[in-house]
Design a binder for these strands. Sequence first.
RNA 1: GACCCUAUCGUCUAGUGGUUGAGGACACCGCUCUUUCAAGGCGGUAACACGGGUUCGAAUCCCGUUAGGGUCGCCA
Length: 454
Amino acid sequence: MSCRVRFAPSPTGFLHIGGARTALFNWLYARHMGGCFVLRIEDTDAARSTQEAVDVITEGLRWLGLDWDEGPVSGDATQGSKGGHGPYFQSQRQAIYQRRARELIDKGLAYEQDGVVRFRMEREPVVIDDLVVGEVRRELTDREAVDPNFVIVRSDGQPVFHLVNVVDDLEMGITHVIRGEDHLSNTPKHIALFRAFGVSPPAYAHIPLILNSNGTKMSKRDTGASLSSYIEAGYAPEGIVNYLSLLGWSPKDDREVLSTEEIIRLFDLPQIHRHNARFDVNKLHWINYEHIRTMPQARFNELARPHLLESGIDPSRFSDDYISAALATCKEKIKVFSELPGFADFYFTETVHYDAEAAQKQLTESNLPRLRRLREAMTELPEFNAEAIQQTFKSLAKELGVKVGVLVHPVRLACTGKTVGPSLYHLMEVLGRERVLHRLEQAIAVIEKSCPTG
RNA sequence: GACCCUAUCGUCUAGUGGUUGAGGACACCGCUCUUUCAAGGCGGUAACACGGGUUCGAAUCCCGUUAGGGUCGCCA
């Protein structure tokens, strides 16, 4: 039988990075095995569930590239779903839970008391045969020794997590439950419930948790706990997927930078670790850069676009060729896309705003003749390309008896307003002769104004 | 308080009784390259939590201690 796994988040308004990793591991397993990945929305708490909150989940998964075979089409519960095991919103499955609770009462395995329905939990220790953790024999806690039974339907008629989770996994034919290790202690309850319904429980794989860099539990409030913070920071989906896959799993061959296709091929449950992993944003940064610098230019442009728009740059005002050429000079320089606007805005603005400190240092009287001479040389260049520009800088530096850097710094400032940026010669080629000459003249004018004697 | 899981460089990890004076990556520190900033190249610092066993031999197996994490809800 083909495997069926699921990701069952509750719509809290954001997607936890640990939740995203759980979704990823489920998805990887499904894709590796050729199985089915189900998305189920655990919105039993109707008050907390809004369409926006569900959209955060579906959009987060889509951004990561984790497509689901069954589940809601969108965050709008009325918009339908795909797959033959729906509905995939728990809020629409109330009748099923009531029927199942009734079944347990009828079998004498649950009973009503004080308006709630309680499940008769067995008193014996439960053995969990976990695919990751191994065989775990769970003894009763002191409270459970007093009363092992637990509530499955609240006094207001709403079913609780343990019931709905098991009923849905049962009815949806889930074969492997891959979830955070925080659920390991709940698993005896779930196993007992499956048995009460007369079926074998699914296989369990409890994956280690992601901790903060200081080793503490990552809670909702912690910075970096939300997937959206990484989307906004401009990480590439393939970088996040790669990094997340390495948290608690290893290909065991010393490779770190892997494409999603490779991870799918190599991924399997036995290679998952038992111990928690701390989130190391440095390594994420590095892996992300490795993906960014090697991705096709078209993919780079695609990921860059929202960040340009975000910063007020409208790419539609420029030709595709110009944008692509401009972005190509940034491709091996930036590590996250949020750096892009600050790095390359000069390509898309008419006026250049000089960095004040650099202007004081570079727009000086002694640089005035050099800039004049450069402007002249740039005007005369037969071909305005990076190689020719570089040659001109070199020969001019020699002629003037200065290092190339002496020319490079003021010209970079004139063209970009900054002290850092893409390769100067390439950036000048992309800008084009007309813009470069204009910006050189601007810089010259600034110096002339402040140094009348020049 | 009870129960469960875990323990190799700062971090992520390789390692499943001997080929390991413990390998890789990130980070860090040098050097180098260089039109800025990065990147790249070369080199370096850095770990088997502790204590008992088992064994000819233990990072690897067992027990304990300590530490970290998790669970014990009419939250999910």
